[in-house]
Design a protein around this nucleic acid. Structure first.
Lengths: 238, 238
DNA sequence: TCCTCCAAACTGGTTCGACCAATTGGGCCT
DNA sequence: AGGCCCAATTGGTCGAACCAGTTTGGAGGA
């Protein structure tokens, strides 16, 4: 499995070629033929999918897909594969992200080092340039938020949170399609940065809360179908 | 890979048979011979370990282990395999757990349904019986906390938190070896339950915070080597 | 027509052996 | 002593084969 694309493609294929009732998917041999690889490759990918709780392999019976139990890493995989995630799961993730990042902002206040501030400044500078160029944020937004989590000096925390951004990787550019959104986000980032610099935990927390509120309502809107997502070439299948 | 033990055993073997400098482990062929299974099996397990970021497979070079980047699921796997986790990572996980569960208690206050309360009552009853029998909690403690997370009705939240308990699976019985600890925990569980029942978010949060404080200091103590863990047959290698 | 039951086809689990090409390390030559 | 080259090693991949339960479809009976 050198190309990790196989994993995502396989997940996608399993998802759309499974029995709606039982969740039963094509057999390993069929999958191998369809992807033009050996059964061994398929089995390796299935092992990972099973570890992610996306799939269950029942001996001598078949492969069954069930995304309800999927791990967070699995959700990220699905998101990157452009698969239609359960809107409920997306929203749940957004809720979690909020919990994590607000607390991260507070912790970062007492633990951030000069190195972190340096990185944040670099990111903010890059953001400014991008906005000046009339482009949307996305990469910079992701890096800003992750740097704050990194500033908590809790690597497990960082591991968990980085998954959120893996999940949103494809949709973030769409979110920031609206230039006004980029500008506002950038302004809020600066406020948060300054709060961190002043080591004002309560303020940082409050600012982060307000900052994430926007994203939350955005997602809520999409999930409830109130607002349609703008089209994007990267998401033609979504 | 029908026996998921192979995964844990392989992880353990890789961990103790890797080069301290480079992290290079024995080759697939050697591993296959050592475990008495085919290379295919080993490769399947390695694929999972690689997805968990425990291991990196470099084509035509070798397999390299690096637990610093490991995912949370990987930490759980290591813990269950009785492997010596990085104390720092353990502590970081405890910190995260606290963040999660305090917030979970608050959310549960507004979202818990009668079904959740029913389960909590059952668990508390089981706890009482276990204490009356002079036994330590552990399973009941785990279930109590997980039920609260479940009461948030956020399944992703639940997915993440269940990993913590997978991690602590082996050590919880040791923690509750001290009968006094079981009794105190149970009493605190009851308080928390009552706060949830009254839908008092602030109180539930505060109680959960205090409740987890004990566990935090316990782990901190072990990590800093101040307190030694009591011996346990299940942990002779730890 | 419908139900029962059995055998054949299918399925995941596992092994073996083989080939490829990049990496690596040690021995040889300078 | 230093540098170069080749051969062994290694992960990546494939295909064929066997096993033992599971499914399933059709034959045969009610």
């Amino acid at each position: 499995m050198k190309e990790k694309n196989l994993l995502a493609e396989l997940a996608a294929y399993l998802f759309s070629n499974s029995d709606k009732e039982s969740g039963r998917t094509p057999s390993e041999r069929e999958l191998a033929e369809h992807f033009g690889v050996s059964r061994g490759q398929i089995r390796e990918a299935l092992a990972i999918l099973e570890a992610m709780r996306i799939v269950e392999r029942r001996a001598k019976s078949g492969i069954y897909i069930d995304t309800k139990q999927a791990s967070v890493e699995a959700l990220a995989l699905f998101a990157r594969a452009g698969l239609p995630l359960d809107p409920v799961q997306i929203y749940e993730t957004v809720e979690l992200r909020k919990i994590h990042e607000i607390k991260a902002a507070e912790l970062a206040c007492s633990r951030a080092t000069e190195e972190n501030f340096e990185r944040l400044r670099e990111i903010l500078k890059a953001s400014e340039e991008r906005i000046a160029a009339g482009e949307g944020l996305a990469k910079e937004d992701r890096e800003f938020h992750l740097e704050i989590v990194r500033a908590t000096k809790n690597s497990v925390f960082h591991n968990i949170c980085s998954v959120y951004y893996l999940m949103g990787e494809q949709r973030l550019p769409i979110y920031f399609n609206d230039p006004e959104r980029s500008v506002r986000s950038h302004a809020e980032h600066i406020q948060i940065y300054e709060a961190l610099l002043r080591r004002d935990g309560n303020l940082a927390q409050a600012l982060m809360n307000a900052h994430l509120q926007g994203a939350e309502s955005y997602w809520k809107g999409i999930i409830e179908g109130r607002g349609k997502e703008p089209k994007s070439a990267a998401l033609e299948k979504a």
